[in-house]
Design a protein around this nucleic acid. Structure first.
Lengths: 394, 394
DNA sequence: AAAACTTAGTTTATTCACTAGACAAACAAT
DNA sequence: ATTGTTTGTCTAGTGAATAAACTAAGTTTT
């Protein structure tokens, strides 16, 4: 019936309570008085919210703090172990599972390699990873509050995986399957979206508002965090910048068009270039990101030139991103980010070429959570959903 | 002091009042009872809001409506002539000024051509246009409620024009200048952002949430309306998709890089192609969008092929846009949109090539307001700002 | 035509969250 | 010990929404 959301005191309370909790999370330890002055809320209002949050085990009082000339304040802390979250990075040839507390700290890690498994076999492995993480969680008021899964493919707004080409998955209702099995909230997200969120909450993007996270692995996926929130597009397909045409007359791509960015600036492209160059020291089978990295590390000129060429191509795409989004920060993540040393110079060179607009305050960084950003990000999604729903109920 | 916005009853009231007004605007004529059932607000609440809105002259009661078996409802209407807004499209070789009512209906239009004028001369013309529009406004409770200006360049969040290459403007504090002269709220926006908003409010994008508006004229500008709101980027530079590289080895662009989209898919590109093809029937001086359009209209094969080639190049960029934003709708506007007849087929062909993701519900449309979208859009920006501030005060 | 039913809009009492300001508790400085 | 400061609680008051009663004005049924 009610099409638009109406506003009433309940909403006010929920929002203010959420505000109080956020301040405690970000500025802990903190006193009631300081919360009041930071938020602008009345002292009494803060007190009552704090009482409720304590009752809900989401925060707790620690000992008295230092006095600044009067009564000593009671310091409040976020109860990060009121529950635990699980974040899974479901890769093409690995599954990375994390158990985190509500603050995102990793409590337990579970990494397994997989190869050429069927859907059922992958699911079995996935259950094993999740089950072992659940088993390792300490007891807590809320237990496991949710599971976040990052997948290398497109996910619609209902948590259905529409297409994950590299997994060869299509139309998988993963959210339903897992909710039926575990009976806790499940969040399914694109891996790049997860990575973007992870870096924003815990990594190099902590204080930035407009972030474009570029995950470079076998292909290229992009997570968009615009205006401080995830942009998913109409069906959740946004960020397929790997298939942005950068060379009209270029190579054919399996997507049907020509000259897609990821044909020139990905792990796949790296291997192709390496094969073309016939690096004497490596046979075709030995070519991999790891072997090329160690080659470059040893100072092999051809190997270094290889990464520099990739960096050049990455830079062209990033230049497009700058013109399209005018982001505050670009974060390069994914497996190829390990080659930062050789990528960064050509990337910067490409970006400096644009003279049209002075992008003085553009930051270009590499992932600071490396392989963990996606898993940490989706775990955080689950935490946020939990906190929002829990505040709502109360 | 207060960093975050707190929530209190005043905010609740303002939001609900705004909600009531929006419902009246979009579903008028409407009764109090229907507003209550649509919004979910209590009948009494709606009544008191309505009373205030009537006192503020923003709505009024018309005669009784049809009964559906009980007391006849009093119908409420938005008072679209409570004030008037001015929207200006400041083009490179024209100034288009509109006087609109609060609903966006055009009351008066003022179009002048300009050519090679200095900054001061342009400003003088601009004042003339504005003054004549102000003079033509009927008397109303609020008078002229604001002026919106759309400019072909980048505008920062303070209304400063940072760079408008085609006007040869740089760092113009247009908002300040006009506010000092007219003492009413001024909104400065990029022309493509204005067009996007115009089409969304009054044109072909009325019921869409994720719109990418592509304005193709001398260059290409893009207005992004994501999640129902304008995305401007960190400094207001977003949407410079004209300088998206689509051909790494392509032509040099004045922006410093190579193969920018607008070198292949703009009015400029059209003229260049036409000159290359040496269309026998037109001398070099005669080449213009208008002359080429009439040539194609006459059935000239070369002329038609020209537009089809441009359409092809436009399509490549649009395909990128789809992969980047996954929009619900793409709207093609700007002067080149007049060639819709010949552009649409090659564009659709390009978009259908992407087999990776099924974009079943992507709409590709041409501007329905044609040359008026930007001016109508910025006029609407001014109206919205007025309504928001006015509701806030009361 | 009278009675019964329906729908529209107003009025009144109540609830709920926030605010202001008083107050007590706990501490520092003199 | 006295004075002043800061913290946190308590109480009264405000403002907005809600529920429900009520008035108004129509239609439908008998």
């Amino acid at each position: 019936m009610a099409l638009n959301k109406t506003w009433n005191q309940h909403v006010v309370k929920k929002e203010n309570k959420s505000l109080v909790l956020n301040v405690i999370q970000s500025s802990s330890p903190i006193s009631r008085a300081d919360i009041a002055s930071i938020t602008g809320l009345n002292k009494g209002t803060v007190s009552s919210q704090v009482t409720e949050l304590i009752d809900e085990h989401l925060i707790y009082e620690s000992g008295p703090g230092k006095s600044s000339g009067g009564r000593r304040p009671v310091m409040l802390l976020f109860n990060k172990i009121a529950g635990y979250s699980i974040g899974i990075d479901l890769g093409v040839n690995y599954i990375l599972g994390l158990l985190t507390d509500l603050e995102g700290n990793i409590c337990k890690e579970n990494y397994i390699k997989i190869k050429d498994l069927s859907f059922d076999e992958i699911m079995e492995k996935l259950y094993e990873v999740i089950d072992s993480l659940i088993a390792s969680a300490p007891s807590s008021p809320y237990g496991i509050i949710g599971i976040g899964i990052g997948v290398p493919g497109t996910v619609d707004n209902n948590g259905n995986i529409l297409l994950a080409p590299n997994l060869k998955w299509k139309n998988i209702h993963l959210k339903e399957i897992l909710e039926e099995k575990y009976h806790i909230p499940i969040v399914i997200e694109n891996e790049a979206n997860g990575g973007a969120h992870g870096e924003r909450k815990f990594g190099i993007g902590m204080d930035t508002k407009h972030i474009v996270y570029v995950s470079i692995g076998i292909g290229i996926g992009v997570g968009l965090n615009l205006n401080g929130e995830l942009y998913k597009g109409n069906n959740g397909f946004s960020g397929e910048l790997g298939h942005m045409t950068i060379d009209i007359n270029g190579k054919d791509c399996r997507c049907g068009s020509k000259g897609c960015w990821e044909l020139y600036a990905s792990e796949q492209a790296l291997d192709d270039y390496a094969a073309q160059l016939k690096l004497t020291s490596l046979s075709e089978e030995e070519i991999s990101l790891e072997s090329l990295l160690s080659l470059a590390e040893k100072g092999d000129e051809k190997g270094i030139a290889l990464f520099e060429e990739i960096g050049n191509q990455v830079g062209i795409g990033l230049k497009n991103i700058v013109n399209i989004f005018n982001p505050e920060q670009i974060i390069v993540g994914g497996r190829l980010a390990a080659a930062k040393k050789w990528l960064i110079a050509p990337i910067k060179k490409q970006l400096d070429q644009t003279q049209l607009f002075q992008q003085q305050d553009l930051q270009v960084d590499f992932s600071s959570l490396s392989t963990h950003s996606a898993a940490m990000g989706v775990a955080a999604f689950a935490v946020e959903e939990f906190l929002q729903n829990n505040l709502h109920k109360a």
